[in-house]
Simulated scan of single mutants.
Amino acid sequence: MSISSDNLELSGHLHLPFHNPTKTAIIIVGGRGCNADETKYNLYAKFFRKYGIAVLAYQKRGTGNSTGNCDLATVKDLATDLSNVKSFLVTHNEGFEKIGVLGISAGGWTMAKAEQNANFDFMISIVGPSTSVKDQQIQSATFGADFYQLQPTAKEKLIEYTNLMFDAKPTKKGFESMENLLASSEEEGWRQLLESTDIPKTETEIKNLWVRRHNFDPKNVLKSYANPFLGIYGERDWIVPQKENIELLKEYFKDNFENLTTVNAYNAEHGMEMESKWIDLGQNQWYWHFYRISPEVRIAIVDFLDKYKLIK
Rank of each mutant, 00 (worst) to 15 (best):
G144T: 05
D146F: 05
F147I: 00
F147D: 15
Y148N: 15
L150Q: 08
Q151A: 11
Q151T: 13
P152H: 12
P152E: 09
P152Y: 08
P152R: 13
T153I: 15
T153D: 11
T153E: 11
A154P: 14
K155D: 05
K155G: 13
E156V: 02
K157E: 12
L158H: 12
I159W: 00
I159T: 03
E160A: 13
E160F: 01
Y161E: 14
T162W: 02
T162R: 14
T162Y: 02
N163C: 07
N163Y: 06
N163A: 08
L164K: 11
M165C: 15
F166I: 08
A168G: 10
K169T: 07
K169D: 15
K169V: 07
P170H: 13
P170C: 09
T171L: 05
K173Q: 09
K173G: 01
G174W: 14
E176G: 04
E176D: 15
M178F: 06
M178G: 03
E179I: 03
N180G: 12
L181E: 05
L181M: 04
L182K: 14
A183H: 14
A183K: 15
S184E: 14
S184Q: 09
S185W: 10
E186I: 05
E186C: 02
E187G: 04
G189I: 00
E195G: 10
E195M: 11
T197Y: 03
D198I: 13
I199A: 13
K201G: 12
K201C: 08
T202S: 06
T202Y: 02
T202N: 09
E205K: 13
I206D: 11
I206S: 02
K207C: 05
N208F: 04
N208V: 00
R212Y: 02
H214W: 02
N215I: 00
N215M: 00
N215H: 03
F216P: 13
D217V: 00
P218N: 06
P218A: 02
K219N: 01
V221P: 09
V221C: 04
V221Q: 12
K223R: 11
K223T: 07
K223N: 13
S224V: 00
S224G: 09
A226H: 11
N227A: 07
F229K: 08
F229N: 12
F229L: 15
F229D: 10
L230S: 06
L230A: 03
L230W: 00
G231N: 04
I232C: 08
Y233E: 03
Y233Q: 11
G234S: 01
G234A: 01
E235D: 01
R236D: 08
R236C: 02
R236N: 14
D237P: 15
W238H: 09
W238V: 01
W238C: 05
I239Q: 10
I239Y: 05
I239N: 09
V240R: 07
V240G: 13
V240P: 11
P241F: 07
Q242G: 09
Q242A: 14
K243P: 00
K243N: 01
K243A: 01
